[in-house]
Design a protein around this nucleic acid. Structure first.
Lengths: 157, 157
DNA sequence: GACATCATGTTTCCATGGAAACCATCATGG
DNA sequence: CCATGATGGTTTCCATGGAAACATGATGTC
């Protein structure tokens, strides 16, 4: 009598789901990076926004929202904070008075390399224990998942 | 003159970080599951709490907080919601009048299998496109990361 | 036994982000 | 030209979760 598997609690804990492990590790990595950024008075979302603005100067808030998979409402607040911190400036688009073009201030441009170093360190700290092959494989698997589920549906135009 | 790599924007986008992909995919998986749970009027956190309570009946709120890596304040609210939804009951511990023992109601026990099926479906939907070897490898890598960084520091007693 | 210390659970306050309503500005069709 | 709709950005409201203060009960020390 195999310990009556019928009425017993099904032995299918949360840990059997890959999603569980993904969330566990992901939250930890992001949380650690958030702590690191905190000494610079920045949030992860703000860091991501700065990156997008750096890569594509004069991006509009709506495009930024698409690129970051966030709502325009949330972006509005983030942009507001970054502007208050003198990291970016908002300029009305000459061809559309509704839109505002976002770009880095000199101060913003100067701080980005340091932030990037922190991001590199954080990534290295977490994934450094994997050897090169493992890191490549992890990246491949994650990209495959993103690809298969069209998570990279980022119009950004 | 290699397009002056000095002053140019360093070509190190967010996507080079494994943490970026981890967060991207993880958020998507969790978000999808959250949507699925929504039709049952449950949040992901509530689902996780139900699982822990099922696995360890008469767990205290403090232990649940440890197990879920959340603060007692947050757990207090989650437990409150689950109690209001008649999924669990709170009973004062006979040996410690501060502590309250949490356990599933019959209704809670009945709904858990359906929730588990939803979780299984969600996981299968997202990771089903990976073949068996890939899924095993992904699990191994994530567990290795959790292990190396002691993310599983779950006292739970 | 009295008091300091600690643990449990709740509450309050804060920050974040989505949903939806809103206003201003384009764009299009009549 | 103007009415209608679409779009960009802001605001308000809501839900979630952490931080910290709090009240209550347990524990330890003297």
């Amino acid at each position: 009598m195999k310990e009556q598997a019928s009425r017993a609690v099904p032995d299918k804990p949360l840990e059997i789901h890959l999603g569980y492990w993904l969330r566990l590790v992901s939250n930890h990595v992001s949380g650690s990076f958030a702590s690191a950024l905190q000494v610079r008075q920045l949030s992860v979302a703000e860091w991501v926004a700065l990156n997008h603005i750096e890569r594509r100067a004069d991006i509009t808030a709506a495009n930024l929202a698409d690129a970051m998979h966030m709502t325009r409402g949330a972006i509005s607040k983030i942009v507001d904070k970054l502007a208050r911190k003198q990291c970016i400036v908002r300029v009305s688009s000459p061809r559309d008075n509704r839109a505002q073009l976002l770009s880095l201030t000199p101060s913003g441009k100067r701080t980005l390399p340091r932030l990037r170093a922190m991001a590199d360190d954080n990534d290295e700290h977490f994934f450094g224990r994997l050897d090169t092959a493992e890191r490549i494989e992890l990246r491949r698997l994650l990209q495959k998942l993103a690809d298969v589920h069209a998570i990279d549906t980022v119009p950004v135009d």
